[in-house]
Amino acid sequence: LAHGAGGLKSRELVEEVMLPAFDNEYLRQMHDGAKLQMTNNIAFTTDSYVVQPLFFNGGNIGKLAVCGTVNDLAMTGAVPKYISVGMIIEEGFAIADLQKIVMTMKEAAAEAGVHIVTGDTKVVDKNKGDGIFINTAGVGEIIQGCDIAPQNVKAGMDVIASGYLGDHAATIMACRHNLQMPGTLKSDCAPLNKLVEKLLQEVPQIAVMRDATRGGAAAVLNEIAGQAGIGIIIDEDKIPVRKEVNGFCDILGFEPLYLANEGKFITFVDKKYTEKVLAVMHQSEYGKDACVIGETNDKAVNEVVLRTTIGGMRIIDMPAGEQIPRIC
C-alpha cells in the first residue's frame, strides 16, 4: 500500500475498498456527514482499537472494532443503529489484509444489524503506525422501559456471567507471544446486541450489565461494587472457564477472572428474575453457557471476594497492570 496522504490515493482506497464493502443508502449519499433518523433517546460511544496481532483465531482488529462499539452501546441498554469507522493505515500495509479486515467488519455489522454510515481513512508513513489503527463510534436508541445503571444494584442480587471467561485474552497472548496453544482456543469476539435487546425486552428489571473487556470480569465486578456501594462474593467453583483456557493460563500464571473478553458480559439482577435471564440467555449462541457466579451483599461494601474451592475467602483486587508476585 502506497496511498499518499489525503489526496487521490486515499480516495481510491475509499472508493475501491470501503464503499463496495460497506455499501448502504447512507454511505451512498456521499455527503460530508450522514443524515440519520432516530426516534428515541440516544446512546453514543466511541473507542479506538490497537491490537497485536491484527489477525487471530476467532477474529481480527476489524471485528473487534465493530463488536466493541456495538457491545458498549448494548451495555447502556440501547439498540445500536449506526457506526462510523476511522482507519489509520501504515504505508506498505497489504491491500489483501485490508480487504480481509473490511469484509469482516461488514459481516459483523450485518450480524449486529448496524449500518456503517460514515468513515475516514488516512495513510501514514512507514513506521508511523502499527499496521492499522481503527476507531469506531456508534449511536443507538435507548430501549424504553429499562434502566441500566450501577446504582440499581442492591444487596442480595445474583451475578451472572454470559459464558466462558478468558477466551479472547488467552488467544491473543498465545498469538502475540507465539506460544503453543490448543487448536480449539479462539477469541470470543461477538456482537452481543441482539441477545441484550431480547434480554431487556423480556426482563427489563435487570439492574446493570457490563461487558468484561479490559481487566476482565475482575475489573467489572470491582467497578460495580464501588459504584453501587455493595460487596460481591463469587464462587471459584462456578466461574465458567474452558479447560484449555484454564490449562494455558495456569502455565502462564494468569487468572482467567482478570483476562479480557470481547463477547462476554456480567449481569446483575434481582434473584426473582435470575431464572428468566438464564432462560433467555441460553437460547442465544452467545449466552448458551451463562450461569450465576455469585451474589451481592451489604456486609463487605466495595469488596469483591472469591470463595475458593476449599472454602477460603480471597480478595479480588481491581487489576493493576502487571501482577507482581506478593509471596515472600
Partner: peptide, 19 residues
C-alpha cells in the same frame, strides 16, 4: 511435570509474565 511444561521455558526466554 505437566504436559505443557515447554510453555514455561518459552515464556522464561521471552520474558512474558516472567519477573
Amino acid at each position: 511435570l505437566p504436559d505443557n511444561w515447554p510453555l514455561a521455558v518459552q515464556i522464561a526466554k521471552s520474558g512474558f509474565n516472567t519477573p
